[in-house]
Design a protein around this nucleic acid. Structure first.
Length: 255
DNA sequence: ATGGTAGATACTCTA
């Protein structure tokens, strides 16, 4: 069973690359973030023709998350149960082959000390409460997506320069760590040891060519599911294409 | 300290 996550930064712009990647990588499940498409404009038919069903929730211009799957998608949850209808579309959860998959586009935060930064920290606290209320560590649970946080210094190209900056500030790291204390393992780190690999590179200043990246896209797994894992990798090849997403897919394989 | 790029929308905001 192969499960991947990818922030595509507009599903409609990225559709040719997305279809090519599905064909090449053939994941059983692909979680998407920043689809930036309203539900009426989600490419259901093209994905179905490629062999994938879809559950999704989107809005105009911003945000938007989806779960694509070759197998049945069950018990779909859109956003937090206590979210209002106008809340940004940042969470979708579903069960596929007995694995509870929680796909998140965690708020960026924009600037330390801003209202959006406070929203990010509060959203992470609500996410922890959501896991407490709806999931059991004794089950197969997979938490993935664009976390917009690099958990450790090794997840940053220049940790000293990034200390205290957005994506690596103490409150953000504490907030994501608290979510992890629900009972998650960072699967990439669990399986690959202390390697320095990244999943996101800014479009600006030639960041990708210079190796100036962060590891902010993640697949975290409950202990039960961690014991089934055989690999977790980041596919940098998509970042080298013309008109790429700024994020690369992260892929996990399970027995 | 600033600005660099990309996407969606509509001439600005978010990332």
């Amino acid at each position: 069973m192969k499960i991947a996550t990818w922030n595509v930064n507009s599903i409609n712009v990225r559709m040719p690359q997305l279809l090519a990647w599905l064909e090449a990588a053939r994941p059983d499940v692909l979680c998407l973030q920043e689809t930036k498409a309203v539900d009426d404009n989600f490419p259901v038919l093209e994905l179905k023709a490629a062999g994938y069903g879809a559950a999704f929730t989107g809005e105009k211009s911003y945000n938007g998350v989806a779960i694509l799957s070759r197998s049945a998608i069950e018990d779909v949850q859109l956003n937090f149960p206590d979210d209002t209808a106008d809340a940004p579309k940042r969470l979708i959860a579903a069960t596929v082959n007995g694995i509870r998959i929680v796909n998140t586009y965690i708020p960026n935060g924009t600037e330390l000390g801003s209202d959006k930064f406070a929203f990010k920290l509060d959203w992470l606290l609500r996410l922890r409460r959501y896991f407490d209320a709806t999931c059991s560590p004794a089950d197969d649970v997979l938490f993935c997506g664009d976390f917009n946080v690099a958990p450790e210094p090794i997840d940053i190209w220049d940790p000293a320069g990034w200390e205290g900056k957005l994506h690596f500030s103490k409150p953000e790291r504490a907030a994501i760590a608290f979510v992890g204390q629900w009972g998650f393992r960072d699967l990439f780190r669990e399986l690959n040891g202390e390697v320095r690999e990244f999943s996101w590179w800014d479009y600006r200043a030639g960041a990708f060519q210079r190796g100036h990246g962060l590891r902010i896209d993640h697949i975290w797994t409950s202990e039960k599911l961690t014991s089934r894992a055989v690999s977790c990798t980041i596919d940098r090849s998509t970042r080298k294409l013309e008109k790429p997403s700024d994020h690369a897919p992260v892929i996990a394989e399970f027995n």
